[in-house]
Design a binder for these strands. Structure first.
Lengths: 147, 147
DNA sequence: AAATATTCGTTGTGATTGCAACGATCCTAA
DNA sequence: TTAGGATCGTTGCAATCACAACGAATATTT
C-alpha cells in the first residue's frame, strides 16, 4: 500500500491554505497590526452591521472565546464599539466606529487586490477551484451545528 | 468598497482546509491517537525510508521543534526508532519500527479511502481543483527558504 | 409564578505553537 | 591545525488556542 503525503489532498489543502493565509496576514498586519481573528471579526462587521458575538462565532468559524478576546482588543484599539443589545441583555451589539470603518475601507482594498492576484495565479482553474471549495464547504456545514 | 468575507478566497480556503483536516484527523485519532504533526511525520517516513528531522521539517511544513517533539512521542509509542546517522553525528536517522509500519499500513488505507471520498465529493471539479492547489503550492515554495 | 434549563459573553486552564537561544558537531579558510 | 562560522536537534518561553466552568439573563416547563 503506497502512500505519498505530498499527493494527499488534505495535506496539500492544508499547506496551501496556511501559505495563502500567511501571505495575506503579512499585508494586513503591516497595515494595521491585526491578528487573524481580529481581521475576521472586523471583516464580518464590515458587511453585517451590528452583530452579537454569537453571530460572529457562528459565521466566522472561531471559538467564542477567541471572538470575545479579539473583540476586546478591537474595542481597545478604537475600531469597534460594544453597545448593549436592545431586547436581550445577554447579547452585545458590536459595530464599527468611524475609525474602524476607515480602516476597513483600506483593508477591503488590500483584500480585493489580493483576491485578484490569486485569481490571476489560478488562471483558467479559478472557477472550478472555487466551485470545489464550495462543495467542500457545503459538506462541512452540514452535519454538526458546531457546539 | 464592498467586501464579503465569505466570498474571500483565503478565508474560504482556510475554512475548507480546517474542516477537511478535522474530519480526517478524527479518523486517524480514532485509529491510533495521533496528532496532526505525528501523522505527518509518520506518513513522511512511510515513503522516505530513513530520514533526519531536518529533512522532515523541510518537506512537511512544520517547525523543527514540532517535528522534534512529535518524533519523540512516536519513539516513545514504539512507532519510530532513532538511530544515529552514519557520517554526520549531528543528524538523527528516523525510521519506522515494524509496529510503525503495521500502523502506517492501516493508516494508508484509511487515507486513501478518504482521498477517494473527497474526489467523489469534488466530482467534475476534482482535476481542476488539484491543479489550482498545485499552482498555489508552487507559488508558496518559491521565494523564501523557510528559515 | 416558581423552578429548571438554556443561552450569552467572559474568564481560567492545560496543551500546542512559533521563535529564539543553546550545546554539540561539522565545515571552511587562514 | 586551528579559529570562526554554519547546521543539527533539543529545550525554554511567551503567545495562542480549544475546551470547560462560571455568573448573568432569558426560555421553558410545571
Amino acid at each position: 500500500m503506497t502512500f505519498q503525503l505530498d499527493q494527499f489532498l488534505p495535506y496539500r489543502l492544508s499547506i496551501a491554505a496556511a501559505e495563502v493565509s500567511r501571505r495575506f496576514a503579512e499585508r494586513y498586519a503591516a497595515e494595521a497590526g491585526l491578528s487573524i481573528p481580529e481581521w475576521r471579526v472586523l471583516a464580518h462587521l464590515a458587511h453585517s452591521g451590528s452583530v452579537s458575538i454569537r453571530d460572529i462565532t457562528r459565521r466566522v468559524h472561531l471559538d467564542k472565546s477567541v471572538v470575545s478576546r479579539a473583540a476586546s482588543r478591537l474595542e481597545q484599539a478604537g475600531h469597534v464599539a460594544k453597545c448593549g443589545h436592545d431586547g436581550d441583555r445577554r447579547l452585545i451589539a458590536l459595530c464599527l466606529t468611524p475609525q474602524g470603518e476607515a480602516l476597513m475601507a483600506r483593508l477591503a482594498h488590500i483584500a480585493n487586490d489580493f483576491q485578484t492576484h490569486l485569481q490571476d495565479l489560478l488562471g483558467k482553474d479559478a472557477d472550478a477551484f472555487d466551485a470545489g471549495l464550495t462543495r467542500l464547504l457545503d459538506q462541512a456545514g452540514r452535519p454538526d451545528n458546531r457546539s
